[in-house]
Design a protein around this nucleic acid. Structure first.
Lengths: 194, 194, 194, 194
DNA sequence: GATGAATGAGTGTTCATTCAT
DNA sequence: AATGAATGAACACTCATTCAT
């Protein structure tokens, strides 16, 4: 039983590797099998199709990531500290998994209609979770009450994604804590000279 | 001669349409030919391969966009107004070309090694142009001088991209001017309660 | 030992069911195993291959059928009554085993060279047995002596097969006795107006 | 235009050859292509799938056969002569196309649900055409009016199929005219001694 | 003996690209 | 120049068979 799960995870890991290197369309099921050290047919014992394997891999990956980032643990401190924590964890995660993170960039839209929608929904869910943080921050009086939480969530998400691009693309490591602080500083107090 | 250019543009237009709807891999050369109202073979009279056609289409498109957004025209007013203008133009452009804009989201990384690099470079160039704006803003005293222009450029770019996602994905139109103002307000004065 | 035979028959029964529903090529060994309530590997403990299983199943089935239809029991009455009896038994058998009878229709030729030949031989044997009936009928003066017994056997066999098609294909039940009488009437006294 | 038709027919001919030799499942699309002297991909320019190719081949073949056998030409003579003609044409056709005729025997049921139905319907259509002959014969007073035309059609069809089996299976040639006469004699005047 | 997880040979189908017309 | 019929390399997926447990 445990062994089945192990083998499954094994395949998912291999899939993550190959998909992130080649993108969905360039990836060959056989290469994933070889990477996992098993026969081609065995992949199909665990996943119904290449697409399902991709979705499962992607979902599992994103799920784990999410859990790590926005996990259910209660956070009692100031929201801004929560944001800082998210930024740091996020950046550290990317530092450690640059290649894996490419999956989210590589050849992912357009795979198929259904997947597109699913990925967009995943993204939206993430944004909505962020929105709640900002709502809470506004209610607690930490954040300005004349701003739209949804917009803040969008901008925060975008900023986060943007900062991460060079890490992923050039496999440059960045200083998670320092970068998080700098990004937060900008978002918290703005650009304008005072 | 002019006719050749016209035919070429014709194909590029058809390519943009089809690639943006289907993504690179799902798009069929024949469909592009049909869309352009020509024979399949003719495409190959103007472009050596599907990949070259994609690159050409993508480059031309991005070039035009860039020109419109960050064109060479001298801008004398405050940098913040320049940013506002960029935001507005950008949002309006997306409003008008949501489908076309999908190209930049759809199935673009992973097409091939070379193209990935090229697209990343395009993105970096854009970010660097933005960086110059922020540098100028800092020098002019419009922006805080304790912030890193490169980081600001990243954040701005990310925010811009992020705000645009729903427009592209759900083909919702947004109020360009209002959204621009709201984004700018956040970026300029920050989130923190005062 | 007896248990082994039971298990074997069990598999044959399952095979008959699945092969008759799907035909040889569409039938999956695993489905037969499931149908027999055993593991896939076990099938191979009793039969060397899918083909052998099919041949065994088919032969056994046809053998039993044959025995029932043209069994060795001596028949003393008029040949025409013998024919009637064969018709009735045949039709009743089909009524009861329509699905099973499909095996002989479904996807059976072309399975493999050897099997084709074997099936043809089975058919020929059946025809030859019929031929003997007609010979006897002619000798006894029941049938016209200006006809070729072999041809009569062919025609009788064909008529029998033909009448049975709708039963097998549409799983319609027919009145065995009535149909037998009507077929015999035609064959005995001909179509021509008198 | 004519050329396209020629090529198409070319493929159909090759398909008939290969399908009749191997049966549907054993036949390889590539072998058909090679047989037709073209590339594998070309087959798919003319037929959407292996199944469609088979159906088209089978339908065309049966259609031609039908046309030749029961063609629309008005027949003014006695129905019995029409039947004789059908028998003769049928037997001559089989003599000339024994291998082709195997197609209808080989591996045809069970190919797929849809095809099964279609083939059965083809058969039924044929039987129904026959039924009309017998109806007409009965109305004209040529045939007994106490018999069911539908049953006669079944029996005639079965007899026809049965007589043909050895030709197809053993590639023995038979004397079409003589056999037709003998079959008709049996069917018309019956087996019973008078 | 029984099992079912693992295997990989085998094949239908797609589609970018070519080239004779 | 323009075409589109022809091509065949490439690949996802199936399933009979094996064999370690």
């Amino acid at each position: 039983m445990d062994e089945k799960q192990e083998r499954r995870d094994n395949i998912l890991e291999a899939a993550a590797l190959v998909f992130s290197e080649k993108g969905y369309h360039q990836a060959r099921v056989e290469e994933i099998a070889v990477q996992a050290g098993i026969g081609k047919g065995t992949v199909y014992e665990y996943f119904a199709s290449k697409l399902e394997l991709f979705q499962e891999m992607f979902g599992t990956l994103l799920g784990r990531w999410f859990e790590e980032l926005y996990g259910t643990e209660v956070w009692e401190g100031p929201v801004v500290e929560q944001l800082r924590r998210i930024l740091v964890v996020h950046l550290e995660f990317i530092n450690r998994n640059a290649r894996l993170a490419r999956v989210t960039f590589v050849d992912s839209y357009g795979v198929d209609q259904e997947l597109d929608q699913w990925m967009y929904e995943q993204r939206q869910e993430k944004v909505e979770r962020m929105e709640q943080f900002f709502c809470e921050g506004i209610q607690r009086g930490e954040f300005r009450d004349d701003l739209d939480a949804a917009l803040l969530a969008q901008i925060f998400t975008g900023a986060l994604a943007s900062v991460v691009v060079p890490v992923v693309m050039e496999e440059i490591e960045i200083d998670a804590a320092a970068t998080a602080n700098r990004v937060l500083e900008v978002l918290m107090h703005g650009i304008a000279a005072r």
